[in-house]
Design a protein around this nucleic acid. Sequence first.
RNA 1: GAGCGAUUAGCUCAGCUGGUAGAGCGCUACAUUGACAUUGUAGAGGUCACAAGUUCAAGUCUUGUAUCGCUCACCA
Length: 719
Amino acid sequence: MKEERQSQIPEVFLSPYDPAKHEKRIYQLWEESGFFNPDNLPGERSEPFTIVMPPPNANGSLHAGHGLVFAIEDTMMRFERMRGKKALWLPGADHAGFETQVVYEKKLQKEGRSRFQMEPKDLYNEIMDFTMSNKSIMENQIRELGASCDWSRSLFTLDDSVIKIVYDTFKKLEEDGLLYRGARTVNWCPKHQTSLSNLEVNYNEKTDPFYYFQYGPFVIGTARPETKFGDKYVVMHPDDARYEDFQHGQKIDLEWINGPIVATVIKDQAGDPEMGSGVMTITPWHSNIDFEIAKRHDLDYEQIIDWRGKLLPIAGEFDGMNIEEARQKIVDKLDKKGLLVKIDDKYDHSVPCCYKCDKEIEPQIREQWFVKMRPLADKAIEAVDSGNVKFVTNRDERVFRDWMSKIDDWNISRQVVWGIPIPAKVCSECGHGMVDLESKITKCEKCSGKVEKDPDTFDTWFSSGQWPLATTHYPDGDDFKQHYPTSVMETGKDIIFFWVSRMIMLGLYRTGRVPFKKVYLHGMVRDKHGKKMSKSKGNVIAPSEIQERFGTDALRMGLLVNTAPGSDMNLDPDKVNAYKKFANKIWNITRFVLENTSDMPEQATLTADDAENIKAKLKTTIAEITKDMEKDRFDLASEKLYHFVWSYFASELLEESKPLLQSGDASVRISRQKLLREYLITSIKLLHPFMPFVTETIWQELPDDMKDHAVLMVAQWPK
RNA sequence: GAGCGAUUAGCUCAGCUGGUAGAGCGCUACAUUGACAUUGUAGAGGUCACAAGUUCAAGUCUUGUAUCGCUCACCA
């Protein structure tokens, strides 16, 4: 009897579900079906559903965080595709400017080379080769995660069409008076030899000595004696009674590090009477606050520290010395001169550091391109106010508004070769910058001086900020007409400022419309104890490793179940293993149902009891799951499905069916067969967005009369 | 300095609009040629951080306290 039944089911079900045996084949089936491309989808589909994929950096392998990105986005896509929408997921790869260059520099360092000994062109070409080979590895990993994106529309952030849009935006910003080139304080990394945006700077807690020096009649305090050579202005608050005898502009002769100097008294609101003695000297070239004061009073400023972190000739005998090395020597010298008042050893402060190398940032004045953010940010806030962009969590919306309300101008130029060149000329005489898309400008518009091509490249986020325009081919592309604004922007909450906010601002700026209607931000993926994954801690889990052990579906479920939107998730292999078992459970349910329903007649009717069961249990489950998914609660939907399938379908329904399937009453038996098939087909469909591989593998083995389409990916979502 | 979040079973976390607590792993006992050992059944284990308040009713709402974490800003 048993052998007889087994002979009627596909042989594949006789052994446990083995993901490695099916996943590749199934992805190929999808890709060859053409259904990743919305133009090929079956049936009439008018309503678009579009996601622009956050293009992964093409400089390495996918990490666990990417696993979460693709699990969430693919689930969204598959759900909406099955619901009959014109589903388009736009893939891409990011050249990731500075990020990639840093990765490549490390590689060069291992080989005993340095970018500073290379021709920029050679360096660029090497990084291009490196990126291209990583890109194809990465794209295969995206396929392995089951991503149902339209590869025929794939784009790279350095493609010509992308650069064209970026250049047009740059030009338009100039025309609209939103772009300027100016000498301003920038965050300079002495190691990487580039400026960084404020977002690329981390503040590290440090305890340093704090020095008090006699500066003429004043005592000044500083943690950075090495910057003090050029200090010839002494600043105090206008209302500070202790210094009311000193007049603004008053000259004072005093002895300083390298001999006598003339200091000038400046009264400015920035002087904080509470701080130390209430008096400070300023170093405008190496401090933003000091620079602001200098600008207010039209003071001189001079560079003290060079681009490599060494002292300049103004330092006299300290010329050419590293600042770390010079500090103590300068203090010693001032001490010998009797100018050292005291040293406070426990001064806690936070110092700005490069987010990549952790080396201290040296603020420097440098000519850079800046975008005026206020007008762009105001439009973005309006878009949120009017509900044109919605954040899935209120928390994200608050964070967004807060940052937007106090945004600074954006330094978009980088001294990095790996990126989109800035199409501009710079006057070698007056420093004036001119946007020059066609390279036609030969002399300065302002002073008729000689011009040179700007050697810098764009901040990678300036181009990424226009990614929704690029991927939909603004302004004439069909995808732009049909799919912009896109439906959801799903990405990590760590790049809300870097990327999400800039896309909203630049999208609004170019098109007058938001680039996406909804923002879903996921949290970070950590190790099973909630610790950040890092190579140094050795707790990094590669998605591929988990996929090999448990299968892709299990990884996806492990990432999604009970991970509330926006909250961090801890990836525990034991949890993933639970869903590996679950995949096998579905597999065996299918086996049971097929074994017991192969003789079901075509004309099967449900008994009243079974009809009632479907109405009360199956239909309500469909409704609940659908509702959760519509609210982007994939964490709840997946958990409910797990319990519905395992605790109810397998443990209860299947068990209670066993005697009924043996019933002498044919109508009872046949009804039960029909009910089980109904449950199976519905479960497989509901699970498909979450566990696409095992469900499609099963689907392909099911008899045709159970299916509404040959490919589950485009079958109809249950109602 | 400012903002945000968290605090629920041994561990890691859910609990969405308030109705006497759930999952995975772990633990204990029992079962076994059953669709499934990638198993089944049963079970132990929680004054839901603390305090006060609103309410017929609070893990869920309000306020405060403590601890942890994250983000932003910044100092001479």
